[in-house]
Design a binder for these strands. Structure first.
Length: 273
DNA sequence: CGTTACCCCTGGAGGC
DNA sequence: TGCCTCCAGGGGTAAC
């Protein structure tokens, strides 16, 4: 489920409930996620107060300076986070609990492509999973010039490039499709063929699409603790994603579905050139 | 180096 | 009803 906006909305939803709260325990019901979950988290974290929650791409990082380390969390394809009351029974795919005095942070991840790791020390950005990550699309560093530099000399289809986290983080299959639609650029275009005007449009549409999705998510999650789906369950209304055969909102041509690098792509063959 | 194929895992949808 | 196939919002690794 989660791309950058869903992860960011989760972060924003968790912050007011968890920040500065002391950990009272942890529970790993299934430790075999994409990588094995550490087993000593309760011992490391119990009694320590959560000092920050940071997002990098689709990763969430929870910081405990007094335990001198970070908890790294990734939701994979099917992961979601919820805050539950301490006595709420765990469901089938609730693999991990981080317990605070009044609430439990609970990770549910049916496909188990997600990740819970402990990063020792104060520099998580040097971890092998984080170090190679590309630019944050909502940061000031992400300009049209920046995007132009990423595209330069690359023959990969622009859609594939948008989804490669070593160049630019956080954009998954949905927001790649929606950003390209908004910029009126075909997902099939070789990256290096985009003209400066198009690059400018694409950079802007990526920002806008992600930002709007975050705002939509934020407004849809009123009470994080008691809401049904957690914060990962919203979705920006898609113009093209998963709308094969339905009319393009702009020109009514049927949305087309193709396959690129093993993933479905959706686009309007008339609007996106 | 750049790009693609395949793999991890479970569940839901649709065809028969 | 069951069984089968395909598909799914991610990403790492191996192979060309």
């Amino acid at each position: 489920m989660p791309e950058l906006p869903e992860v960011e909305v989760s972060r924003l939803g968790l912050l007011p409930h968890l920040l500065h709260e002391p950990v009272v325990g942890c529970l790993a019901r299934r430790a075999d996620l994409r990588l094995p979950m550490p087993q000593d988290l309760a011992a490391r974290l119990t009694g320590h107060r959560l000092a920050a929650i940071v997002r990098r791409g689709k990763y969430l990082l929870f910081h405990w300076p007094t335990a001198s380390g970070w908890l790294l969390l990734h939701l994979g394809m099917s992961g979601s986070l919820r805050l539950t009351p301490p006595d709420a029974p765990a469901g089938l795919h609730d693999h991990f609990d981080l317990c605070f005095p009044r609430v439990i942070l609970r990770l549910k991840d049916p496909r188990r492509f997600g990740l819970v790791l402990w990063l020792e020390g104060e520099h998580p950005e040097t971890h092998p999973l984080l170090e190679p990550l590309g630019v944050e699309p909502l940061s000031e560093a992400f300009t049209a010039d920046c995007l132009a530099a990423l595209l330069k000399g690359r023959t990969t289809p622009i859609k594939t490039l948008l989804m490669s986290a070593r160049r630019i983080v956080g954009i998954g299959n949905i927001y790649a499709a929606e950003s390209l639609y908004r910029a009126a650029i075909s997902p099939l275009r070789p990256a290096a063929d985009l003209r400066p005007k198009e690059i400018q449009r694409l950079a802007a549409s990526i920002r806008e699409t992600l930002q709007e999705a975050i705002e939509a998510g934020g407004s849809s999650v009123r009470d994080y603790v008691h809401s049904d789906g957690g914060a990962g369950s919203f979705q920006l209304r898609a113009a093209v994603y998963d709308r094969t055969g339905q009319p393009c909102p702009r020109c009514a041509a049927p949305i087309r579905q193709i396959r690129q690098s093993g993933r479905s792509s959706f686009y309007c063959p008339r609007c996106q050139k």
